Measured scan of single mutants.
Amino acid sequence: EINVTSHGEEQAKHWIELAKRMNLDVEVEIHGDKIIITIK
């Protein structure tokens, strides 16, 4: 399980695309200006 804290939408999209390509599950939480991505 990987937790990524992203401070930008572009960076977040990059991680989500990467996870989808690798067929991994992704959870995205938004806390103000921080985007927390959990890849399982």
Rank of each mutant, 00 (worst) to 15 (best):
residue 3 N to W: 11
residue 17 E to S: 02
residue 3 N to M: 12
residue 32 G to Y: 12
residue 30 I to V: 09
residue 4 V to L: 11
residue 32 G to H: 11
residue 20 K to S: 06
residue 2 I to W: 04
residue 22 M to E: 03
residue 2 I to E: 08
residue 10 E to T: 06
residue 32 G to N: 07
residue 31 H to C: 15
residue 8 G to R: 05
residue 14 H to Q: 11
residue 36 I to Y: 02
residue 7 H to S: 10
residue 13 K to I: 07
residue 14 H to M: 10
residue 7 H to K: 07
residue 40 K to G: 02
residue 36 I to T: 03
residue 38 T to P: 00
residue 19 A to F: 15
residue 39 I to W: 01
residue 16 I to T: 04
residue 14 H to W: 09
residue 13 K to N: 12
residue 2 I to Y: 02
residue 12 A to R: 06
residue 36 I to S: 03
residue 11 Q to P: 06
residue 15 W to M: 11
residue 21 R to D: 13
residue 7 H to N: 07
residue 21 R to F: 13
residue 18 L to C: 15
residue 29 E to M: 12
residue 19 A to N: 13
residue 33 D to C: 15
residue 38 T to C: 13
residue 8 G to K: 07
residue 37 I to E: 00
residue 24 L to Q: 01
residue 31 H to T: 07
residue 16 I to M: 05
residue 2 I to F: 04
residue 22 M to V: 07
residue 32 G to K: 07
residue 11 Q to K: 09
residue 40 K to M: 06
residue 17 E to I: 13
residue 37 I to D: 00
residue 14 H to D: 12
residue 32 G to E: 10
residue 15 W to S: 06
residue 26 V to H: 00
residue 30 I to A: 02
residue 37 I to N: 00
residue 5 T to F: 01
residue 28 V to Y: 03
residue 39 I to F: 01
residue 3 N to L: 10
residue 24 L to V: 12
residue 30 I to R: 03
residue 30 I to P: 01
residue 37 I to S: 00
residue 25 D to E: 11
residue 24 L to A: 03
residue 27 E to D: 07
residue 34 K to S: 08
residue 30 I to H: 02
residue 6 S to E: 10
residue 16 I to G: 06
residue 25 D to Y: 15
residue 13 K to Q: 04
residue 35 I to N: 00
residue 39 I to M: 01
residue 2 I to L: 08
residue 19 A to I: 14
residue 40 K to Q: 04
residue 34 K to I: 13
residue 40 K to S: 04
residue 8 G to N: 10
residue 39 I to E: 00
residue 13 K to G: 08
residue 32 G to P: 08
residue 30 I to Y: 06
residue 13 K to E: 12
residue 19 A to R: 03
residue 18 L to A: 05
residue 33 D to K: 09
residue 34 K to R: 09
residue 34 K to P: 01
residue 38 T to M: 04
residue 39 I to R: 01
residue 16 I to V: 05
residue 24 L to T: 01
residue 34 K to N: 05
residue 27 E to Y: 10
residue 6 S to W: 03
residue 7 H to D: 06
residue 23 N to R: 11
residue 22 M to P: 04
residue 17 E to N: 01
residue 1 E to Q: 11
residue 7 H to T: 08
residue 36 I to E: 02
residue 18 L to Q: 04
residue 8 G to H: 13
residue 39 I to H: 01
residue 20 K to W: 14
residue 23 N to G: 15
residue 30 I to K: 02
residue 18 L to E: 03
residue 35 I to V: 05
residue 6 S to K: 09
residue 17 E to A: 03
residue 6 S to L: 14
residue 3 N to Y: 07
residue 35 I to T: 02
residue 36 I to L: 04
